[in-house]
Nucleic acid binder design. Structure first.
Lengths: 199, 199
DNA sequence: TAGTGAGTATGACAAATGTCATGTTTTTGC
DNA sequence: GCAAAAACATGACATTTGTCATACTCACTA
């Protein structure tokens, strides 16, 4: 019997996944968590075979939790909406056994769990294509700037926050617009978001 | 036996909800759709008692689909992540029987379905607090303008598209900023989106 | 019917935004 | 260790954006 802990902050999906997996003859959902902290506690308490982990959760993210479980016998499979380069990289470094997407059909979950428990790894195929996605062309500083722009901050406010002059900020914006191949801040935000580059 | 169609673009949740509801003695999931178009077709084909409808789906949104099902005997219950004023208002005008949030515990779903099939309505309590919050304060013309702004269009482009002068467009923007209580276009877009007022 | 208010429209002005040439510092590859 | 490239920073300049006073139309109503 494969013993499972699920961590997912969206109540409806948490419950429904529980129902889905409990239908499987060889699986049992022994505990459910609604955040990363809770997930850690439950895994340590119940010592399950596998923990299904959402990434974006309150208190402690699924990636934080996965990192803390790196040397724990419980296997971790990340289940998230986001096929993001950054997330995937962190997950791999945390030595997770699987990375699945919520967009995938639900019957893949049970089979992925069996594959993982048998010692292999499972990555959603979309992640492979993603390796060929475009890289974020903005430097760290430029990313700071576009994040503040997206918050609706003005040039002056950004300058103050980053301890640089107005002119410098305007120059960063100019470079950002050029790199993203758009012609104003609003388009830059849309493009950046659409590429999934916002942290 | 309550016959159910589920429309949800996220595969994992679609399958898991199916499993969850099929566990109920008195319910049967007879079809699953991954977008609004498909949902409409399946409802017309199978004539279920109730259709569970996500809002943000490709091809046709759940709200569009719900509007088309207004005079159809099949009841509609919206199931979404977003407790947005605009969404809820549109859903109510489309005469849906329920509006639930994905954040709620999963066991509320089955009981909500029974309540709805028996002829009553079910709204997530979070919506009641929000219910008579604020109306969209923008006039039709102002809404045209903010939509074009959100597309990243410049004042000049908007003026050309609406056959008015630059000055007029800028004035609309000024009024919009005032009404939304923000200080630039980017904040206006965020606020308008956050309120769920974009059509 | 005159008065009120909302919606639409305009242009003058001030402020914020975007461009560009240029210089400095930090990384990188050899 | 050193050249080249990349990142970071600035100010001058032109354009775009936001504010405000003003005016016209239309619907409502006292």
């Amino acid at each position: 019997m494969i013993r499972i802990v699920i961590a997912e902050d969206q109540g409806m999906l948490l419950g429904a996944l529980g129902a889905l997996l409990d239908l499987e003859e060889d699986m049992k959902v022994i505990a459910k968590a609604r955040n990363g902290e809770e997930a850690l506690a439950l895994v340590k308490q119940h010592e399950p075979d596998i923990c299904i982990m959402d990434i974006e959760m309150p208190l402690k993210s699924g990636l934080d939790a996965a990192e803390e479980l790196k040397d724990h016998p419980c296997k971790v499979v990340v289940l998230t909406t986001f096929a993001r380069q950054g997330y995937f990289e962190r997950a791999r470094k945390a030595d997770v056994s699987g990375y699945l997407l919520k967009d995938s059909p639900s019957d893949e979950l049970a089979s992925a769990i069996r594959t993982i428990v048998s010692g292999r790894k499972v990555y959603a195929p979309e992640l492979v294509d993603m390796a060929y996605d475009d890289e974020n062309p903005l430097t760290a500083r430029e990313q700071e700037v576009i994040k503040l722009i997206a918050d609706g901050k003005t040039t002056k406010e950004i300058a103050k926050e980053l301890f640089i002059t107005n002119g410098t900020v305007r120059n960063y914006v100019s470079v950002i617009l050029d790199k993203l191949d758009v012609s104003n801040r609003i388009e830059a935000i849309s493009r950046f978001k659409e590429k999934g580059w916002f942290k």
